[in-house]
Nucleic acid binder design. Structure first.
Lengths: 220, 220
DNA sequence: GAAGTATGTAACTAGTTAGTTACTTTGTTT
DNA sequence: AAACAAAGTAACTAACTAGTTACATACTTC
């Protein structure tokens, strides 16, 4: 669905508001198209058309294709930054903390396909553009999750030989890969990976793996 | 390093051999450049120049940019197919089997950066091109690793509630992410992620996670 | 309500890019 | 060695694409 229909500027609007709406429409369309096709695969004309705006104004607001791309990254990374700030706070029970953080992260990814794809493109871009944006946002989430892990170790719930950086990377990987590699996996699994049932099954698998691994343990 | 220097066709070579060499040089250069920049980011002219060959011949041998890309995928997927055939055979000890398979896969990725990047691009392409190649190769590896997991369950070493498809995806994710997200992680970790020490540390972390998870267990 | 400024449009430009064509060189076969 | 075919070259084309320019419209402010 194109962006145009839902919010073309009305004639009576104030100038500032219309401009604000134009900027927002461009950002939404750019998010959609950059996420779908990457920086190289996307066309400025397509973004402008999808946003229902003239190319002239797109350049007026965002300067260049690359600048727009960086803005898109900033805009989307901000979402997960906000998520971390709200949902990653430390409660008493370590298992509870880790579970909540992973669940929050997992369902955030499930609902933000653009985000998943944007960070995947960026990984392939070797973080060339994300580097301009990440220092402000990303490590904050990582650090907050890192605190949860470190707290779990201190309370002797998590094994002390676990490097929290490795754990963070692993949790990210386990969550991301499910969405990231969805289209590759789908034909082999023959199931709708985004159904409520399958999402929950994946989350439970991740939690089981993170907490206990695949091996039979006598206790629990 | 360009491909040209090492193997420009010698004047005395037979026609067939020169042609074979040209095809190979194109495939190597294309692998390098497609892996680096993706399908959209790569230029045919750049590939031709790197291969030290005229564009005319590139089209003569491979037809079109997309066809060449598919050939590159086929060529590289074949490597891991060969790997699976040799290294994923079933021994007696389930833990041993899983360990060997993961170690083999992990170090294969460590040594085949192009492969890592190509499958990552393909995930973002929604498997559009890999789909033409995967049926022959990829699921074979997956199935062989699947057999190892299923065997482990039968022997009561692996928990019976583990879905082997989820386990495969998780192992892939844990290995891939380390290389895939290397450049993003590097500035935060401040270490050379490809050093022998760090590679082995990551592998040990993956094995620990897969077998036992992060939680303290009394036995072992 | 006039002047000024932000928003918007369409046509254009200069450079790029996948793919082609007309032609040359070189190895092979008889 | 002549005839043929495969390998190779350089210049070209048509379509595309990021970014610009000259011009028009409409809101705001004085």
């Amino acid at each position: 669905m194109s962006n145009t229909e839902k919010s073309m500027p009305k004639k009576g609007d104030g100038r500032e508001q219309r401009s604000e709406e134009s900027r927002a429409r461009i950002l939404n369309s750019a998010t959609k198209i950059f996420a779908e096709k990457g920086l190289d695969g996307s066309r400025i004309d397509e973004i402008a058309e999808d946003a229902g705006i003239n190319k002239r104004m797109l350049y007026h607001y965002y300067g260049s294709k690359e600048d727009l791309y960086v803005e898109v990254l900033r805009y989307n990374y901000h979402k997960i930054y906000a998520l971390g700030k709200n949902a990653f706070n430390l409660g008493y029970d370590p298992k509870e903390n880790v579970t909540r953080a992973i669940r929050t992260y997992f369902y955030f990814l499930a609902e933000n396909d653009s985000f998943v794809r944007l960070i995947s493109w960026e990984a392939l871009n070797r973080g060339r553009y994300a580097g301009k944006v990440i220092p402000q946002f990303f490590d904050l989430v990582e650090l907050e999750f890192g605190d949860i892990i470190k707290d779990g170790i201190k309370r002797k719930y998590i094994r002390p030989d676990m490097d929290f950086r490795q754990v963070i990377l692993s949790v990210q990987a386990l969550c991301l890969a499910y969405f990231n590699r969805r289209e590759i996996v789908q034909p082999l699994w023959q199931e709708d990976l985004l159904s409520e049932k399958m999402l929950e099954a994946r989350l439970q698998h991740i939690l089981a793996l993170i907490f206990n691994g695949i091996v039979c343990h006598k206790e629990e």
